[in-house]
């Protein structure tokens, strides 16, 4: 990144636009690679769901792993989430969002699972009401 006085060029700020055409080809390559990787992972997911080669209780974990991988592909190749300096804020926000998402999902499943375990079976409740 070249350093120059930035105060006066806010008007023509579209710094990633109107570049050379080989830059556009590079972007096209990025999207195409993302499409290929995402398609591959999708096919893998559907194969894992259909096949009986994998130990049955392991299938949901395999699908979850493939899903996380594909979401990562989408974030990097389609949403252009990078480690560049102007992206650090986005990465931090994403990390915080993932923390909340993790708390909500795992917390809910954990608590409700324990509630289900501790609950009296429905038939016993009916008996007590008689």
């Amino acid at each position: 990144m070249t350093a120059h006085a930035h105060g006066d060029d806010l008007e023509h700020e579209e710094d990633d636009r109107g570049g050379a055409s080989d830059e556009h080809m590079a972007h096209l390559g990025t999207y195409a690679l993302g499409l290929v990787l995402a398609t591959g992972l999708t096919i893998a997911s559907f194969w894992v769901a259909k096949t009986h080669l994998i130990y049955d209780p392991g299938v949901p974990m395999a699908l979850a792993t493939l899903a996380v991988a594909q979401m990562g592909i989408h974030l990097v190749f389609f949403l252009h989430l990078t480690t560049a300096p102007d992206n650090t804020n986005n990465i931090l926000a994403l990390a915080f969002g993932l923390l909340i998402v993790g708390l909500v999902i795992f917390g809910s499943v954990w608590i409700m699972d324990h509630l289900n375990h501790n609950m009296m079976p429905m038939q016993q409740i009916m008996q007590m009401q008689r």
Binding site: T42, S45, F46, V48, A49, D56, V59, P60, L63, A64, L66, A67, Q70, M71, H74, L75, F78, L79
Partner: peptide, 19 residues
């Protein structure tokens, strides 16, 4: 972003649901 959400839906709702 909607495609990212769909990845989670088709993997964790549909495909896990069939197993």
């Amino acid at each position: 972003f909607l495609d990212v959400v769909w990845v989670a839906i088709f993997s964790l709702v549909y495909l896990v649901g069939t197993r």
